[in-house]
């Protein structure tokens, strides 16, 4: 790693002030950022740890909306929403491994927007609101391609609001080495329709599978998905672990599993 300082503010204001310095960078749980720093792929002068900001931690359930503090570790989410939103608990409880889940945070995951990360699919499928120090951003506007988001420089995700669906499921098909999603499907059924978010598959990061949403909104059944063609594999990630066509196939196969599980 290159040289840098680590500071640990205890309030959002202090954090923002620290982040306003040149080449300062926010540090969530560090479970992705620290390995990146070890490879010398980033060169911050200061890392601003968000782990000391108590106001950014915790989970609350209120009126059908779950609010998760941006610095809340995955393990806490998995425990806190087990009853209120089991599919989200399942997602949070299967990110990385137990030690990673004790450190990694929802804010860190969404800010990084790794194309194979789990949380972006939940945020997009639930139509979540990404709350920052400055504004509220709808998930549909937030994700802008792999590793790219609507966040401005120095902007911090303070919390995420996720509307609880009537039915939901998250199916993660793991890339066998990294155990990130080779393809992950988050399915959420609301009174006004079904949303299907896909992570791991696309060169453009997490996306909604519109055809499946339409079909499932009309008929929430495995058969409704069966009738669809898999999305095109042309724009999907093709690597050592699977071709674009294989990922495209998985999108459909896993969506069927998700519907079966949520039904």
């Amino acid at each position: 790693m290159y040289n840098f300082d680590v500071v640990r503010p205890t309030s959002v204001d202090e954090a923002l002030s620290a982040l306003s310095q040149e080449d300062a960078q926010a540090l969530g749980g560090g479970q992705t950022l620290i390995p990146t720093l070890k490879q010398r792929l980033a060169m911050p002068t200061t890392l601003v740890s968000l782990s000391g900001i108590d106001s950014m931690k915790g989970v609350s359930v209120d009126g059908g909306v779950i609010t998760v503090g941006g610095a809340t570790p995955h393990a806490v989410v998995a425990g806190e929403v087990a009853d209120a939103f089991p599919a989200l608990a399942h997602l949070a409880g299967n990110i990385g491994d137990p030690a990673v889940r004790n450190r990694g945070t929802i804010g860190g995951s969404l800010a990084n927007n790794d194309p194979s990360a789990c949380y972006p699919s939940a945020a997009l499928a639930t139509g979540a609101t990404i709350v920052t120090n400055a504004r509220e951003i709808a998930a549909d506007d937030y994700f802008q391609g792999m590793f790219t988001t609507a966040l401005d420089e120095g902007e911090i995700i303070t919390s995420v609001k996720l509307p609880v669906p009537e039915k939901a499921a998250y199916i993660k098909f793991e890339q066998p080495a990294s155990r990130f999603s080779l393809v992950g499907i988050f399915l959420a059924k609301y009174a006004d329709g079904v949303r299907v978010a896909v992570t791991g598959a696309s060169n453009n990061g997490v996306f909604r599978w519109a055809e499946a949403e339409a079909a499932l909104s009309a008929d929430f059944s495995v058969a409704a998905v069966e009738g669809l063609s898999a999305p095109s594999g042309d724009d999907m990630i093709s690597d050592l672990h699977g071709s674009g066509d294989y990922r495209a196939h998985l999108v459909k196969a896993l969506t069927k599993k998700a519907v079966a599980q949520a039904s």
């Binding site: 066998p176 080495a177 990294s178 690597d239 050592l240 672990h241």
Partner: peptide
């Protein structure tokens, strides 16, 4: 699967890709 591409770059260069 320790794999190289056609240019001799190691594709499975860490536990992220070597399962």
């Amino acid at each position: 699967n320790c794999a190289y591409d056609e240019n001799g770059q190691l594709l499975s260069a860490s536990y992220m890709d070597y399962a």
